[in-house]
Design a protein around this nucleic acid. Structure first.
Length: 539
RNA sequence: GCCGCGGUAGUAUAGCCCGGCCCAGUAUGCGGGCCUUUCGAGCCCGUGACCCGGGUUCAAAUCCCGGCCGCGGCACCA
């Protein structure tokens, strides 16, 4: 029934008749036996049996509304008060992705207009850029708001001239007034007075809290925070110097004012940001309306959480400060910062893939670690060399009639790259304790051995023998040139340490190498000295 | 409390705008098998979801109403 109408939408007006017809036919067919039904189908309607080709699944982002190729300008506007985390990477990657998709432009803008409560961190400007580069984000322009102050002053004057803003001298009282749907009496003063007062603000004739510039909105707007929202306020930069411009400015734009001005002046066409900005969008529209600017297209998506990771900037900072020595820094692999994920061994392509798959839905998304790990594993597997690492090592002595030699490929897909390992009678070898308890094992690439007390007794080299007996094929490390290795395994807020020995080949890899420790999991080499410290990425 | 936005398998997502090719697709996870000198990868098979209740309609995941739940906002933060 549905099928018929889908094929012939022109029949829709007759749907009622068709429904009746269809049910008659169905009941008729149902009287026949199943075999009979099949026979008729095969004989007379064989063409129905042919599978239609499966349509190929489209991957990637949905088209951007109101977007014209070559005309799209997006932006990523972080607050440089700390490094960015996976949640911040979402607008960054999405903005980058759409700019690329439409051959447009992407702008990076640091929003550092509050040296008091969101004091910028001097190093963060560069750290954020590093993270973005690592993520593969490409930007064509770079701006710092604290370096654009005269621009905000100029637009503010224009907005006052247009009668859209006023200087509020009522201080604390204004908050109550506005909550009640009323407002400070200075709102009704003439434009000339407002301009005068604004210059007095700039000339430091007022202190913090004594005067603010407010947008005129609807004093009875259902959302009290929208009512005459603050566009400019005074921050005492003698007490709270800004890390870039010091005490040069006294009057600072609020987020909503600076953003509206910049988005317009920089020609931003599409603003992609979290839904926590929905009300801000509403506020910013007042600026566009007053100035007669055309607003960009706003897209708000939900929050992004990474299961089992701490993302909050302030919480991470507190944890580090209150627990000296417990964390490795803002890039600790237990944190959801970009730097933390990088140190953990997550690839930037994996982050991008996950963020693209989550898309731009307004609903929240909780990414499960196993999902991120699966994507990362898929990318890592073909490029990570296999190295043998022995955890919980026990030391055994080889007993065999002669030396045994084996060749082990670094990667199963490229068997021509391999190292040679030689075990001779009397050699000491580390294997994992639980493997030693298996009785008979096959040392990967070497041969089959029987474990007898502290001895490893050679049986034979036959792989078929090992298969027939289902012997575990285990990793090992000859003690002679074994590398002492510690693997840090992040588990929630804990960082477990797994000690052991790796085979000599580990020496060939430097810091930042990504490897797979055979039967253990993927790791990233974090430091190399006499011994090696690796960080466990995932299985 | 007020304002706004959402609820599709364990997780994420497609479909919703324009109701019928959807007894709901895909990925991951989980279970089983094949392959394989790793408990990896790959390949097969299986598992599992439209928040609840009404309504409109021949037909509702899709439209309407109510409820429940979740999230965001309610700053002189961004």
């Amino acid at each position: 029934m549905g099928k018929v109408l889908a094929d012939r939408p022109d029949l829709k007006p007759k749907a009622r008749e068709i429904a009746k017809l269809a049910s008659e036919i169905v009941s008729e067919v149902n009287k026949l036996s199943l075999d009979e039904q099949r026979r008729i189908l095969e004989e007379e309607y064989a063409w129905l049996l042919q599978e239609k080709p499966k349509k190929e699944e489209k991957k990637g982002l949905p088209p951007l509304p109101n977007a014209r190729p070559g005309q799209v300008v997006t932006r990523f506007a972080p607050n440089p008060d700390f490094v960015i985390h996976l949640g911040n990477a979402r607008p960054a990657i999405l903005s980058d992705e759409y700019a690329k998709m439409y051959r447009g432009k992407m702008i990076l803008r640091f929003e550092d207009t509050d040296p008091r409560t969101k004091k910028p961190m001097k190093e963060a400007y560069d750290l954020i850029k590093e993270d973005l580069k690592w993520l593969g984000v490409v930007w064509h322009e770079e701006h710092i708001q604290s370096l654009r102050m005269p621009i905000y002053y100029d637009i503010a004057r224009e907005i006052i001239r247009r009668g859209c803003a006023y200087v509020d001298l009522c201080g604390e009282k204004s908050r109550e007034l506005l909550r009640a749907g009323k407002y400070c009496e200075t709102r009704d003063k003439p434009v000339e007075w407002q301009l005068e007062q604004f210059e007095k603000m700039i000339n430091r004739e007022y202190g913090e809290g004594e005067a603010v510039l407010r947008m005129k909105t609807d004093p009875r707007h259902p959302n009290p925070s929208v009512r005459d929202w603050v566009a400019m306020r005074i921050i005492d930069t003698e007490k709270h110097p800004h890390p870039i411009v010091g005490s040069k400015y006294w009057v600072w734009p609020t987020y909503n004012f600076a953003v509206s001005v910049d988005d317009h002046l920089m020609g931003v066409t599409h603003v992609l940001r979290g839904k926590e900005h929905q009300v801000n969008t509403e506020k910013q529209l007042y600026v566009y309306r007053c100035m007669g600017w055309e607003p960009p297209t706003f897209i708000h998506f939900g929050r992004l959480k990474l299961e089992g990771f701490i993302m909050s900037k302030s919480y991470i900072r507190r944890l580090i400060e209150e627990n000296p020595g417990r964390f490795l820094g803002y890039d600790d692999p237990r944190f959801g910062t970009i730097a933390g994920l990088r140190r953990r061994g997550i690839l930037p392509e994996a982050i991008r893939e996950v963020i693209i798959s989550v898309g731009i839905k307004p609903g929240d998304a909780k990414i499960s670690w196993s999902n991120l790990a699966a994507v990362n594993r898929k990318l890592l597997d073909p490029i990570a060399d296999r190295i043998m690492f022995v955890s919980e090592p026990v030391l055994l002595r080889v007993e065999s009639p002669s030396c045994i030699e084996g060749e082990i490929p670094y990667h199963p897909d490229r068997p021509e790259r391999k190292r040679r390992i030689r075990l001779c009678p009397g050699d000491k070898v580390y294997i994992t304790k639980s493997d030693a308890e298996r009785g008979e094992v096959r040392l990967m690439g070497m041969g089959n051995f029987r474990v007898e007390n502290d001895k490893l007794v050679f049986v034979n080299e036959s792989l078929e023998y090992a298969r027939a007996r289902k012997l575990p094929i285990i990793q090992f490390a000859p003690a002679r040139d074994a590398v002492r290795t510690e693997v840090l395994v992040p588990e929630g807020l804990e960082l477990k340490k797994v000690g052991g020995y790796a085979e000599a080949a580990l020496r060939e890899y430097g810091v930042d190498s990504r490897l797979q420790f055979v039967r253990f999991g993927f790791v990233r080499i974090d430091s190399v000295s006499d011994s090696v410290i690796a960080i466990f990425t995932h299985e």
